[in-house]
């Protein structure tokens, strides 16, 4: 009986530890070949566009737009990675679609706030917006997210899985070893083993919570840009007076607030609020 218990103990602990790697093993078994081919095509169109920029700007632009379309298709098919949003932003920016590029960089940074390349190219896109309005400031939630983005999302995911399953393994050890110990009349060390298990479970749950937090924050992001030059009005209609003497240039960033049919209330980075036509709103939301 004691041997059977020991065997069960070893098997269950092995299963717990193996569970950490289950997602990795499952991910590695997915056939990514066709996806890789599509990405290569989009990349090739982008490289072709960049190469033609000096000699044939029109052909370059057409190629870059083709690259952007292919990236958008991948996105629509569910490939929501910060890298894809970043490359899409680059293709759009080189194709002179500044609002589209800014919104794609927003998506890249929503998925990975630590992506310094996306932040750099977003700054470049902002420089190309004619009349610059300060971009909206980061919210408190975004600053909290930045703190846990010292570790990337995937690192936190696997650490969470490891801590969770190790915690379970520790508690399995406590439960079954106690039985074995009873048989050999030795029970020392059970308390700290139990405490270790509980602490590991809490760590795993907290890290898992940050992953959920990322998903919620990304889905609820209300950053958007103007698609074309538009007048910021005091109300939701053409009959309302303008808020500013000049129209907002294409690519102006803002937070959206209330939506009404055909109109959306926005807040600029300097706190100015007003309404613009929803047709002028460009928003590239992850998970859409």
């Amino acid at each position: 009986m004691m041997r059977a218990t020991r065997l069960a103990l070893l098997v269950l602990i092995a299963l717990c530890l193996g569970g950490t790697g289950f997602a990795i093993v499952a991910a590695s078994l997915v056939d990514r070949g066709p996806l890789r081919e599509q990405v290569r095509d989009a990349e090739a169109a982008y490289d072709r566009g960049v190469a033609l920029m000096a000699s044939d700007p029109e052909a370059a632009r057409a190629s870059l737009q083709d690259s952007a379309r292919q990236y958008e298709s991948l996105w629509r098919n569910g490939l929501h990675t910060p890298g894809l949003a970043y490359n899409l932003g680059n293709a759009r920016l080189r194709a002179r679609d500044i609002p589209g590029a800014i919104s794609a960089y927003h998506a890249a940074l929503a998925l990975d706030p630590s992506d310094s390349r996306a932040a750099h190219n977003l700054a470049e896109a902002r420089r190309q917006v004619g009349q610059r309005v300060a971009p909206p400031k980061a919210t408190l939630g975004a600053r909290v997210r930045d703190a846990w983005w010292l570790l990337s999302g995937i690192e936190r995911l696997f650490l969470a899985a490891a801590a969770w399953n190790l915690g379970c393994a520790a508690l399995v050890w406590v439960v079954l070893r106690r039985r074995v110990a009873e048989e050999i009349a030795a029970t020392s060390g059970a308390e700290w083993q139990r405490a270790t298990g509980v602490v590991l479970l809490i760590v795993g749950a907290l890290l898992g919570g940050t992953i959920l937090g990322d998903a919620v924050a990304t889905a609820q992001s209300n950053l958007a840009v103007t698609g074309s030059q538009t007048v910021l009005r005091k109300g939701n209609g053409e009959g309302f007076d303008p808020v500013l003497t000049e129209p907002l240039p294409a690519g102006t960033e803002f937070h959206t607030h209330e939506m009404r049919p055909g109109w959306v209330e926005i807040e600029l980075g300097d706190g100015t609020r007003g309404w613009i036509s929803a047709a002028n709103l460009v928003q590239f939301k992850p998970y859409e």
Binding site: L15, G19, R36, N87, N165
Partner: peptide, 30 residues
Amino acid sequence: LANASIDDLIGIPANPADIVVSALIGPSCL
């Protein structure tokens, strides 16, 4: 700056179902 690499772009396909299974293995053993 340059584009992200293809591996960066594709990323690790973290399937939610796999993650759930992975998270349930430990409690099941317990």
